[in-house]
């Protein structure tokens, strides 16, 4: 399913967090929301899944305006913090969330086994989550997000605090999920991760400063590093401020 974000703005009390953002993500692609911490990536994701309403503008997923209760069945969401139940086992966490998606018992059992194998946690399925390492929790959180085979997957900083080896592994899993036909929107502040995506939206101070295919974006830089685009955005805004 494709996503269309049209002129979306959001303000929290005194601060304009998202400023007139417009872009469209085609179905079946990985789109990266790239930006420094505090740039508005998480707010944009929360707007796109319908957790918070936009002050202005509209968001449509597959032609359906968000927020929409039926669309929640088709959306998978992995929050920035792991958002798991520490007092439950990995399997019990999955069983609980599967139940909320009204998955029938046999299908749920099969799917739990599949996703646990996918994130390499099969042998730890009976362990309580409170005994998991940070990396294991991240992988289980991803398993929860993809359990109901969503058509669209939102991942908020899924690789934050993860070592490079595990990060590589997690990105391989994202590619597998994408190849199965799922649209993935992933936020990150790790600039190198942009090369894993098809498209990238560069967010800076709540504004969309660039949105294009990763190939095109990298061509706009002098030495193939996407940071350059942020440096120029940063110097432009500082220049504007000094004027």
């Amino acid at each position: 399913m494709d996503i269309v974000v049209s002129h979306v703005s959001k303000r929290f009390v005194q601060k304009q967090v998202i400023k007139d953002v417009t872009f469209a993500i085609p179905a079946g692609e990985i789109c990266c929301l790239l930006g420094p911490s505090g740039s508005g990536k998480t707010t944009l994701i929360r707007l796109m899944i319908g957790a918070i309403p936009a002050d202005q503008g509209t968001i449509e997923i597959g032609g359906v305006q968000i927020p929409n209760m039926n669309m929640l069945e088709k959306i998978g969401f992995m929050p920035q913090n792991d958002a798991l139940y520490d007092d439950l086992s990995a399997e019990a966490n999955l069983r609980f969330f599967g139940g909320l998606y009204h998955m029938e018992k046999v299908k749920l059992e099969k799917r739990i086994n599949e996703v646990l194998a996918m994130v390499d946690l099969k042998e730890h399925e009976k362990k309580l989550v409170k005994n998991f390492s940070g990396g294991m929790k991240k992988r289980l959180s991803l398993a929860v997000a993809i359990l109901h085979s969503p058509e669209i997957l939102f991942l908020d900083e899924p690789t934050a605090g993860i070592d490079p080896v595990l990060r590589r592994k997690i990105w391989e899993q994202f590619q597998d999920i994408k190849n199965a036909g799922t649209t993935i929107i992933v936020s990150t502040h790790v600039m190198d991760e942009v090369t894993e995506c098809d498209k990238a939206a560069l967010i800076y101070n709540g504004s969309l400063i660039e949105y294009d295919s990763v190939t095109n974006l990298l061509q706009k830089t002098q030495n193939g590093r996407v940071e350059e685009l942020f440096f120029s955005a940063s110097s432009n805004s500082m220049g504007g401020a000094s004027q």
């Binding site: 929640l72 069945e73 959306i75 929050p79 913090n81 958002a83 909320l100 009204h102 929860v144």
Partner: peptide
Amino acid sequence: SGGTLERLLMTPI
């Protein structure tokens, strides 16, 4: 505080 409420409410419950 653990973020599970937000995740819970992103399901069809």
